[in-house]
Measured scan of single mutants.
Amino acid sequence: MALNTPQITPTKKITVRAIGEELPRGDYQRCPQCDMLFSLPEINSHQSAYCPRCQAKIRDGRDWSLTRLAAMAFTMLLLMPFAWGEPLLHIWLLGIRIDANVMQGIWQMTKQGDAITGSMVFFCVIGAPLILVTSIAYLWFGNRLGMNLRPVLLMLERLKEWVMLDIYLVGIGVASIKVQDYAHIQAGVGLFSFVALVILTTVTLSHLNVEELWERFYPQRPATRRDEKLRVCLGCHFTGYPDQRGRCPRCHIPLRLRRRHSLQKCWAALLASIVLLLPANLLPISIIYLNGGRQEDTILSGIMSLASSNIAVAGIVFIASILVPFTKVIVMFTLLLSIHFKCQQGLRTRILLLRMVTWIGRWSMLDLFVISLTMSLINRDQILAFTMGPAAFYFGAAVILTILAVEWLDSRLLWDAHESGNARFDD
C-alpha cells in the first residue's frame, strides 16, 4: 500500500549564491595573561575582544583620537594649579581661619623630617597626573615632529594605576569627618577644581587605549598563520617573532617567553612588605597634641575612634588600611606557593584573586592621604596640633611594595603550573 505524501511548494523562490571570495581570516594573537594562541577576527570600533580561555580583555573598544586626548590633557593642565594650590577646605580653629590644600599637606610631611613619605604622596597625587598630561601632550606634538614615541607609550600603561586623584578625593571626605570634632569646616574653591580634575582624569584614563596608539604610530604586520613560536610582548602586546637582537619589532624591548626574574622580584617585594606591615600596624601612625597632652593612634585605634562619629567612614578606612593590605599579602603568598608547588586545582579562583588584588591594591594609600591633609588643617603649635607617627613611612612603603609585587608577577606562570593543553579552566 503506497502512502500519498503531499508536496510542499515554497511560496518564495530560494536563491543560492556561491561564495565568490575567501572568507576573511583572523590574525593570530597570544593572550598576555595566559599565553593562549588564538585567531582574533577583525574588530570594529566600539567592540571589545576577550581571550577565549581566561576571559582577559585583549582589545578595548573604547578609543579616543589623539586630538581629543590632547584637549583633555590641556584642560587638566589648566585645572591643576587651582586643584593643588587653592584651598580645598576652610576650618575655623580657636577663632582663626585655616586653609588646607594639597601642596601644603605634602610640605608639612616633608617639613617634619619625613621627606620619603611626603614624596610618596607627591608622586601619586601630583607627579603621576602631571606625567600623564605631559605624556599625552608629548605624543600629540611628537607625532607631528617625527619624534620617538616608544618610551612614552611604554610608560603610559604602567602609569595608570599610580594616578590616585580619586583616592585622594575620598581622603578629603575622611579628613573632614575627623577634623569636624575640633573645628567648623567649609569647602574651599580649590575643592571644585579638584573634583573637576578627578572627573576629567577618570574619563581620560578610561578612554586612553595605549594598544590602539601603538597600532597608529607603529603598525606591524600581524601573524596570519598559526605558529607556536609566536611570542607576545608584555610592553606593547604585539604578537610576532623577535628581531635579530631578540627584541620586539614594535617597542624594541627584549621579547622573552616569560617575564625575567618574575618570581624572585615578586618574592622579594612580598617578604619586604610583610616585614614592614608589622611596625606599620604596631607603631603610632598619627599623633595629636591637645592642650599640651599627647595622644597617639595606631591604624586600628584611629579607626575605632573614627567609628564613634561615623561608622560608615570608619568601615571604608578599615577596608583600605587593614583589610586590603593583608588580603593582598595572603593572596600573593598563596599564588606564589601554588606556582612553586605546581598546583593544578582552583586555577579559576587564583586568576580571579590576582585580578582582584590588581584592582584594589592602590586604595591602601588612602590613610597616607588623610594624614597629609589633616596635617595641613590642624597645626596650632602646642594648643592643638596633628602630626604623623613613625608607622606612616612603614605603611606607605608596604603598600608600594605590594603594588610592585602584583605588577611583577607574570600571570602566565600560573598556567605553566597548571596542566598543559587546557582550553578551559575551572575549579
Rank of each mutant, 00 (worst) to 15 (best):
N148G: 05
R17D: 10
Y289K: 01
A392E: 01
K328F: 00
D166S: 15
A314Q: 08
N291H: 14
R62N: 15
V195C: 10
L263A: 04
I400K: 04
L230P: 07
G190K: 04
T402A: 01
I131Y: 01
Y289H: 04
L79S: 04
N379E: 01
V195A: 08
S206V: 15
D297I: 02
L373K: 15
L40Q: 10
L306R: 01
P242Y: 10
F217H: 11
L373R: 01
K57E: 14
R25G: 10
D166G: 15
S65P: 05
A314C: 09
I136C: 04
L352F: 13
G146M: 02
V399C: 13
P129N: 06
L200H: 15
A175D: 01
P6R: 11
L159T: 03
R256F: 03
I322S: 09
E21L: 07
N310S: 10
T67I: 15
A73S: 09
D427P: 12
S338I: 15
I299L: 09
G293D: 02
F318C: 09
K229Y: 07
L409W: 02
W140Y: 14
L409K: 07
K12F: 09
W363Y: 12
P325G: 05
L300T: 03
N101K: 02
P249A: 04
Y182P: 01
L89P: 00
V313R: 00
S206T: 14
L159A: 03
A128K: 01
R362K: 09
D181I: 01
I106K: 01
V125H: 06
M332H: 10
I330D: 01
L149A: 07
L282N: 12
L373Q: 10
G346E: 14
T11A: 12
I91Y: 04
L368T: 08
W84M: 08
Y182Q: 09
R294Y: 07
W107Y: 10
R245C: 09
H261C: 03
D99P: 04
I96M: 14
L154P: 03
F141Y: 01
P32M: 11
G127M: 01
I403G: 02
A18E: 14
M120W: 04
L132W: 05
I126S: 09
W214Y: 06
Q244C: 07
A307Y: 14
G346N: 14
T349N: 11
M76T: 06
A100N: 08
A175K: 01
T374E: 00
G118F: 01
L404I: 15
V399Y: 01
F393C: 14
I43L: 10
K265T: 02
R53P: 00
R348Q: 11
V406S: 05
T358C: 10
I131M: 02
A196Q: 08
A223Q: 10
Y138F: 10
Q108V: 11
C124S: 05
F395P: 00
K13E: 10
F238H: 08
M388H: 11
A71F: 06
L277R: 02
I106Y: 12
R231C: 05
P81L: 06
L213E: 04
R348W: 11
A128L: 02
I330P: 01
A272Q: 01
P41G: 11
W64E: 06
E21V: 11
F192K: 14
V370L: 04
L276C: 05
M356N: 10
Q7W: 09
T204K: 09
R259F: 07
T117R: 02
R68V: 04
I303N: 08
L154N: 02
L366R: 00
F318E: 03
I91T: 06
R355P: 05
W267K: 03
A196W: 09
I285G: 01
T134S: 10
M109I: 10
G118L: 00
G292F: 08
A307S: 05
I371E: 01
R362Q: 07
L384W: 02
N209E: 07
M80I: 07
A70D: 14
D367W: 00
A405T: 05
